[in-house]
Lab assay of single mutants.
Amino acid sequence: MVDYIVEYDYDAVHDDELTIRVGEIIRNVKKLQEEGWLEGELNGRRGMFPDNFVKEIKR
């Protein structure tokens, strides 16, 4: 799994989504079957977030 950095703020709409803020690092990200969404861990919580608000961290 890979990590992503947040490029744009996003406020969660549903309980299974993450609220993300610019500059945060989302860890252990995986792609979901639902197009346009990823799932990852942030601040001890796992949830979904839109893939166009983040950028993969290349290592």
Rank of each mutant, 00 (worst) to 15 (best):
E35R: 13
T19Q: 04
G23D: 01
I26C: 04
I5L: 11
I26F: 01
A12C: 06
Y10A: 02
G40M: 03
K31C: 15
A12P: 03
K58S: 09
H14F: 09
D15I: 05
K30L: 09
H14M: 10
E34W: 12
L32S: 13
Y4A: 08
D51S: 12
N28T: 03
G44V: 01
V29D: 01
M48T: 14
G44D: 05
Q33V: 06
E35T: 09
L32E: 11
L38Q: 05
G23A: 00
I57R: 13
Y8D: 09
R21A: 01
G23H: 05
W37E: 01
E24H: 04
I5V: 11
E39T: 07
L42A: 06
Q33S: 14
H14Q: 11
M1R: 11
E39K: 07
P50N: 07
V2S: 13
Y8N: 05
F53K: 10
A12F: 01
W37Q: 06
E7W: 05
N43E: 09
N28A: 05
A12Y: 00
V22H: 09
H14Y: 07
G36M: 05
D15M: 06
K30N: 11
D15N: 12
V2H: 04
I5S: 06
I25C: 05
R46I: 08
K31D: 05
R45I: 09
E41G: 03
G40C: 02
L18I: 08
V22A: 15
R27H: 15
R21D: 00
G40T: 00
R46M: 12
E41K: 01
D9L: 00
L32Y: 08
K55L: 06
L42S: 07
G44H: 04
N28V: 00
M48W: 10
V6Y: 04
Q33K: 12
D51V: 12
N28S: 09
L18C: 03
N28E: 09
E7F: 07
V2I: 14
V2A: 11
P50C: 04
Q33N: 15
T19A: 02
H14I: 05
D51H: 13
K55N: 07
E34F: 11
V13T: 07
L32C: 14
V54R: 03
D16A: 12
K55T: 08
F53I: 11
Y10L: 02
L42T: 04
N28H: 08
P50G: 06
K58V: 06
D9Q: 12
E56L: 09
Y4P: 01
E7T: 14
R59G: 14
N52H: 07
N28P: 01
K31H: 14
E41L: 04
R59T: 13
E35C: 10
R46F: 06
G23N: 03
W37V: 08
D51C: 09
R27M: 10
H14K: 15
E7P: 02
I5F: 08
K55D: 02
D11G: 04
Y10S: 00
N28Y: 05
N52T: 12
G36Q: 04
E34G: 13
L42F: 08
E56C: 12
R21P: 01
V13D: 10
V22M: 04
D3S: 12
N52P: 12
F49S: 02
